[in-house]
Design a binder for these strands. Structure first.
Lengths: 134, 134
DNA sequence: ATGTATGCAAAACATTTGCACCTGG
DNA sequence: CCAGGTGCAAATGTTTTGCATACAT
């Protein structure tokens, strides 16, 4: 993820955009809300506006530089870099902890289902809500 | 869905609660936002407060009388009656049209995945975002 | 230069909450 | 009767927008 990706999206390479990418790259765990990102930027001493974070994330989402998810128990969206292989998520309903997993068989069946319904599969979201075993 | 289910949940059988159930039963398509439900109730001449709709839906969700989903392109949640077999959703990204489907193999694999991670699968949400074929 | 991007504050939403008044069992 | 439920309006929290200023190319 770099200037290259920003340019490819037809966007100018600006400091706020680089900083948002940087925060997303360094974050661990790497699922952050817009607010999380805003706060991390403040901590990094960079003074970036609230609105800019939201705008940049929206543009990055359109450009497929980041992915947005809605699995947070409270309302807000979370973002992660879209690099690497597609994966799904497992959320611990007690702790909120997020684990990623990949299952090629499920991907395959999804394509079959879309095919049976004669539509094109554009995207999908699979979230497993789990609980630690007692 | 009836007074029986409301009582089973430890809730009193009140007019607002019955009306919300009624609207959910009669709705077609049957995925409604809280706002949709509120508006339908106004149309039915019943004057029910905004807050009550939200409160009732929240209680119904806890009682597993309804299920809440987050697949709306804009932020808001949608609700549907939880009766019948579990199913997943396919959303047309152009029209917003929602189609339901059931795939036992996917359910099975999900249980396997949870099992491999040594956690209990409490719930899951699978949404396929699709486009009509041109 | 000039079209984009940013920061700020205000607006827009969806949802929740406080509280005095009702109502179901 | 009276704990639980409701309506209203105000509060909350997140995300968007308007606009004057600053910046990338």
């Amino acid at each position: 993820m770099s200037q290259r990706d920003i340019r490819k999206a037809g966007l100018r390479v600006t400091l706020p955009r680089l900083r948002v990418l940087q925060v997303l790259e360094e974050a661990e765990p790497h699922h952050l809300s817009a607010e999380d990102i805003y706060k991390k930027l403040l901590a990094l001493d960079e003074s970036i506006g609230h609105a800019t974070v939201y705008r940049v994330l929206m543009q990055f989402e359109d450009a497929k530089i980041v992915r947005r998810h809605n699995f947070a128990d409270d309302g807000h969206a979370v973002y992660e870099l879209a690099e690497g292989e597609h994966h799904d998520h497992m959320v611990d309903i007690d702790t909120g902890e997020v684990t990623e997993f990949v299952n090629e068989r499920i991907e395959e069946i999804q394509r079959e289902i879309a095919d049976n319904h004669e539509v094109d599969l554009v995207d999908h979201e699979l979230v497993l809500y789990v609980k630690k075993r007692k």
